[in-house]
C-alpha cells in the first residue's frame, strides 16, 4: 500500500496536473477537480441522472475524468458506479427502459446530443467488461474485428500491424504469437481479459472504460492486468469500476466514491484513501460497510 501511495503521489508531483484540494462533495454538488485546464479533461459529466423505468439509479452526478489518468469508481454494489460508467459510451442505450438525463461531454461534445452516432462514439470510448467476453473467433480476428468494422486498416499488412501492436500493448503478444489462429476462448481467463483489452485498444479509443475487469481473475492475472492498466495510461484515459479498494489505490490517480446512486466524494486517490472528507467514504474504505 505504502509503495503504491508513494508512486501515486510522485506522479501527482510531476506536475502535469497541479495538485487540487480534495473536494468534499454533497449529494448534488459539483466535482470539477480543475476548471483551469480544459484540455486535461477528457470527459465531463454534468447533472447526470439515470432511470431504469421509474426507478432512479443515479442522482445528478457531476464528475470530470482527466486525460491520461486512471479514474477509479468505487462503492458498494448497486451504488450506480457501473451505471455511470455505461453512460459514457451509451451502453445503457441497449437496456430497455433506461433513461439518461443531464449532460456528458467528450472533448466538449455532448454525447447525448442530437446527431451523435453511437457507433462513432463507441469507436472513441472503448470498454472492457467484468467477465472476459472474447468473440467466437480466433485470437487474431478478435483483435482485428474493431479495425475491420471501422475500416482502420487499408490492407492486410496494416491490419497485421494493428493486431500485433495491440496485442503487444496488452502484454499478450509473446504468449500468443504462435497461435493467433486458435479460438480466443481457448485462452486462460486472464489472457482472455487481456485479449479483450487488446481488442478495445485496437481501434485507438480515447477513453477506455473498465467495468470490474479483474473480478473474474485470479490474483496473478489481476496483477498483470493492473500493471497493464498503469502502462495504458500513457496513451489512453481510463475509467475503472472496481470493488477492490486496494486495486483502486494501486492503479488510479483519482477516485470517485459512489453510494446509493450519489457521488459522495471525488478527488486524488491518496486523499480519498488517507484523508477522506466525508464520513461515509471513511466508513467504506475502512470496511465498516459495503
Amino acid at each position: 500500500m505504502d509503495r503504491e501511495a508513494d508512486v501515486a503521489e510522485a506522479r501527482i508531483d510531476q506536475g502535469e496536473s497541479p495538485f487540487r484540494a480534495n473536494f468534499a462533495l454533497g449529494e448534488n454538488s459539483s466535482a470539477t477537480p480543475d476548471a483551469g485546464a480544459p484540455q486535461q479533461i477528457a470527459v465531463t459529466a454534468k447533472d447526470v441522472s439515470v432511470f431504469y423505468g421509474k426507478k432512479q439509479a443515479l442522482f445528478s452526478v457531476n464528475l470530470n475524468i482527466e486525460r491520461n489518468r486512471v479514474t477509479a469508481l468505487i462503492g458498494p454494489s448497486g451504488c450506480g458506479k457501473s451505471t455511470f460508467l455505461r453512460c459514457i459510451n451509451r451502453m445503457n442505450d441497449t437496456i430497455e427502459g433506461c433513461r439518461v438525463t443531464g449532460e456528458i461531454k467528450l472533448d466538449g461534445t455532448d454525447i447525448y446530443g442530437r446527431g451523435i452516432d453511437v457507433v462513432q462514439l463507441r469507436a472513441r470510448v472503448g470498454m472492457v467488461f467484468q467477465k472476459p467476453n472474447p468473440f467466437p473467433k480466433s485470437i487474431y480476428e478478435n483483435v482485428a474485428y474493431g479495425p475491420r468494422i471501422h475500416g482502420l486498416a487499408a490492407n492486410g499488412r496494416e491490419l497485421d500491424d494493428i493486431v500485433e501492436q495491440s496485442l503487444r500493448r496488452a502484454g499478450l503478444f509473446d504468449e500468443v504469437s504462435d497461435r493467433l489462429n486458435t479460438p480466443g476462448t481457448s485462452l486462460s481467463g486472464g489472457q482472455q481479459q487481456r485479449l479483450c483489452i487488446a481488442r478495445a485498444i485496437a481501434i485507438s479509443p480515447e477513453v477506455i472504460l473498465m467495468d470490474e475487469p479483474c473480478s473474474a481473475l485470479d490474483p496473478i492475472a489481476t496483477a498483470k492486468v493492473e500493471e497493464l492498466i498503469d502502462e495504458l495510461r500513457e496513451h489512453f484515459t481510463i475509467a475503472i469500476v472496481t470493488h477492490n479498494m486496494q486495486q483502486a489505490a494501486r492503479v488510479s490517480q483519482y477516485t470517485a466514491f459512489f453510494h446509493l446512486g450519489n457521488l459522495v466524494e471525488f478527488g486524488p486517490t491518496e486523499h480519498i484513501f488517507t484523508n477522506p472528507t466525508e464520513e461515509r467514504t471513511q466508513d467504506y474504505i475502512t470496511g465498516r460497510f459495503g
Binding site: N89, M91, T94, V118, V119, Q120, L121, R122, A123, G126, M127, F129, Q130, K131, N133, P134, F135, P136, Y145, G146, I149, H150, C196, R199, A200, I203
Partner: peptide, 15 residues
C-alpha cells in the same frame, strides 16, 4: 448467446 458477447461487440462500435 450471452449478453456479454453482444455488449462486447456494441462496445467496439459494431452496429
Amino acid at each position: 448467446v450471452p449478453r456479454s458477447l453482444r455488449e462486447g461487440a456494441y462496445a467496439l462500435g459494431a452496429t
